[in-house]
């Protein structure tokens, strides 16, 4: 860890968080709400009891992974916004293995997790190849892949994976393929440890290996990377593959790591937008794997604590969303600014 100057960005982030909160407070004052009361409800709601903390972390779990997808892309010089679709496919992969393949305990859970990651990674391959071979811009191709994934996943969920008699969702994960719940009736499962471990591994990979160094160099300065003999195509493929694994894992955690449904809804309602939210999380987390974990907790807190703003401080739910959005935008501005500057300075 000594290799990374963590504290400075962290302090900067805390400063921007307070700016974001002030911005949200101004919005509330404009609409005649008491911001102190509302924020108190938000914080107590998100962190006030063990139960709430676990709930907040449950919301954070998939987000730290989809944030990783975007972050690894940016580190490699790519705007990979395909986390959404890769995550759908990850959910499908996990659903298939967890719900329909009876396997011995232990192995089953591992296989379902691996299937999710693999499906996510495979879905990331076409845009990567298109970029490497034909120079197709990844923003375009990943958006298209997101839509294809949406319809593909819906189709598979309804026609092949549906639970008999309850076809609005897929067959639930068999008990052998479920991550254990951390406390009784909590939404948080041991899946969060897998997610954290994955983020840590990616961090160590990016900053501690030759391949990670080359990936970051290609993102930081493509000309210098060429000078250093880094092969562009390899970096693109690698960055997409890691991103796909992360997004696929995110999708899997929502199936085999999140009660009560343990399955995928035919509307994809229990995974939808998690991939896009990851972009915001990544920006707040400065496109850093560890920063992304912290930012995901913040997002989780807003997602879970937001309902208490509504419930206890009476803030209109639309306004809660607006305030959360405002906080997130404020937080993302520095990183967005950096990205934009880097683009134009080339």
């Amino acid at each position: 860890m000594k290799r990374l100057p963590l504290p400075r960005p962290l302090i900067e982030s805390l400063v921007t968080i307070s700016i974001g909160l002030v911005a949200g407070a101004l919005l509330m004052l404009l609409f005649d709400y008491n911001p102190v009361q509302a924020y108190r409800a938000l914080f107590v709601g998100a962190f006030g009891s063990l139960e709430d903390i676990l709930e907040t972390l449950a919301f954070a779990t998939p987000l730290m992974l989809t944030a990783l997808t975007f972050a690894v892309g940016v580190r490699g010089g790519l705007f990979n916004i395909g986390a959404e679709g890769q995550m759908y496919l990850g959910a499908i992969g996990a659903t298939f293995v967890a719900g329909l393949l009876p396997l011995p305990p232990g192995l089953h859970l591992a296989a379902a997790t691996a299937a999710g990651m693999l499906f996510g990674a495979l879905w990331a391959v076409p845009p990567a190849l298109l970029k490497a071979w034909r120079g197709v811009h990844e923003v375009i191709s990943t958006i298209m892949c997101n839509w294809i994934a949406f319809y593909l996943a819906t189709y598979l969920a309804i026609n092949f994976l549906a639970e008999p008699g309850r076809a609005e969702r897929t067959a639930p994960a068999l008990v052998t393929a479920r991550y254990p719940v951390l406390t009784e009736d909590a939404s948080l499962t041991a899946a969060i440890f897998v997610a954290l471990a994955f983020c840590l591994v990616v961090y160590l990979y990016l900053w501690g290996t030759r391949a990670g160094y080359e990936l970051r160099l290609a993102g930081e300065n493509p000309d210098a990377a060429r000078y250093a003999g880094v092969k562009g195509g390899k970096v693109i493929l690698l960055s997409f593959a890691i991103g796909g694994l992360a997004a696929g894992l995110a999708g899997a955690t929502q199936i085999i790591g999140r009660p009560p449904a343990w399955s995928l809804y035919a509307t994809l309602g229990n995974v939808i937008t998690l991939g896009f939210d990851g972009i915001g999380v990544a920006l707040v987390g400065r496109n850093h794997p560890i920063g992304g974990v912290l930012a995901a907790v913040l997002f989780g807190a807003l997602a879970h604590g937001g309902r208490f703003m509504e419930y206890h401080a009476g803030v209109l739910s639309e306004l809660v969303r607006a305030i959360n959005g405002l906080i997130v935008i404020t937080l993302a501005v520095p990183e967005l600014w950096m990205l934009a500057r880097r683009r134009f300075s080339r």
Binding site: E55, A58, S187, G269, A303, R307
Partner: peptide, 9 residues
Amino acid sequence: KVEADYVPN
């Protein structure tokens, strides 16, 4: 807002 809100709500 999302399916995951059902239980906490």
